[in-house]
Design a protein around this nucleic acid. Structure first.
Lengths: 218, 218
DNA sequence: CCATAATAGGGAGTGTCACTATCCATAAGG
DNA sequence: CCTTATGGATAGTGACACTCCCTATTATGG
């Protein structure tokens, strides 16, 4: 199919498709002439993924491009590897500002201690590690005293870990093709985040309603 | 204190403070002359909160303004009320696009059923309710078949609810002043979100490492 | 008292992001 | 053959979060 049909079938304007091509969100079509190219199912699939990542997850174009680049670079790896690479590409690499080196070092140490306490089999370049360091720096900075001891975070780790058992099936069926697994993993990661955060807010409300102890001033 | 000192002590440039004043993120200073005004501790506190909400949580200016407006409008309410209002103001109000009315209706029904299954004492205008509807619409749209039955979400609700018990203390000490409680609640809500999401990614990695069952093709 | 610096308030300018529109030299299709 | 479409490139748009600059005062040190 050519541009017009790709646009019609995906629901994305041609101008936007061209923009995505420029930004590397879409591989170029198969050229049939200096000014003609043929697009296929993979382009439709990718446009659908772009829409999900932009409209539902709100990811910036640059991040989506990074995820796709990582996916394409590692399509020969084993499933756990390329999944990890793709999900990891969702996060910005850690950039420590000159004036906050100690704050990051402290957070980094605390994260390492936490992972040790949890006994998790993850290393510092696993997806989420740098995000956790960044997040802990933020908490330290603006709510100092909230995480004074690393072990305070352990219940959160254990709880979230129990969710992982529900989210990720025990077995991986190799009959399902790689790109479907990838799509599922990346989308599952980002589309479920707002679900969890919204549930957390609602849980807070329920928790407060069950706390009869908003003692009145007397 | 006046502009220069407010800027120096908060670390926010004067041009930015003026911008925040225009956008309603800061209440105007006490005017002492047509071109002079006096700022106080409340302005310093607020600038600090703005920094946290912008730099650590990445919230847009308009959202921060909405939170402050809600806080100011409800400063006479009881603690559970104004906390709920403030945290609720963190979310955009639900806007249903013309062409997705059924999708939202379906998600709304599913959220209602979920809350019933969980037995939570929350109503549809609680903070997070609309976010959950939006998030469920997103999952339905881009990962159809993932949430076919509402009860699949129950474990997530229960798990997150158990976190709420850890996060929110049993009692609220009225000796602590309102604005500190508010700051703590709003910041606690948003600063802990990235911690949870990062832990989730790490938990996924650990889960996958414990899943020996990435069966090889044979 | 006066020269200099600082101030509130407002408008305009900047850089980034994610598109969106226009142009042009081909190419496709009836 | 002639209208329409295409790929590639460049420019423009609107939202956002500042940032700069201007002006008529006002504060302040000598």
């Amino acid at each position: 199919m050519r541009m017009a049909e790709l646009s019609r079938r995906s629901g994305v304007p041609t101008a936007t498709i061209k923009y995505y091509l420029r930004e590397g969100l879409l591989p170029p079509g198969e050229p049939t002439a200096p000014n003609q190219a043929e697009y296929g199912q993979q382009h439709l699939d990718r446009l659908d993924l772009v829409r999900a990542l932009r409209e539902a997850a709100g990811l910036p174009i640059a991040t989506i491009a990074r995820v796709f680049a990582a996916m394409d670079r590692h399509r020969e790896d084993t499933p756990p590897e390329y999944l990890s690479i793709a999900v990891g590409a969702l996060s910005e690499p850690l950039a420590v500002p000159e004036d906050q080196i100690e704050a990051y070092a402290r957070a980094q140490a605390q994260v390492a201690e936490l992972l040790h306490l949890l006994g998790w089999n993850v290393d510092p370049d696993s997806p989420g590690h740098d995000d956790l360091v960044r997040a802990v720096v933020g908490v330290h900075r603006f709510l100092p005293g909230l995480i004074t001891e690393t072990k305070q975070l352990v219940p959160f780790g254990r709880t979230v870990r129990s969710l992982a058992d529900v989210e990720i099936p025990e077995t991986y069926d190799p009959a399902v093709d790689r790109s479907a697994v990838l799509r599922f993993s990346v989308l599952g990661t980002v589309l479920f985040e707002p679900v969890l955060l919204a549930l957390r807010k609602l849980a807070h409300t329920d928790r407060i309603r069950h706390t009869a102890a908003w003692r009145r001033r007397r």
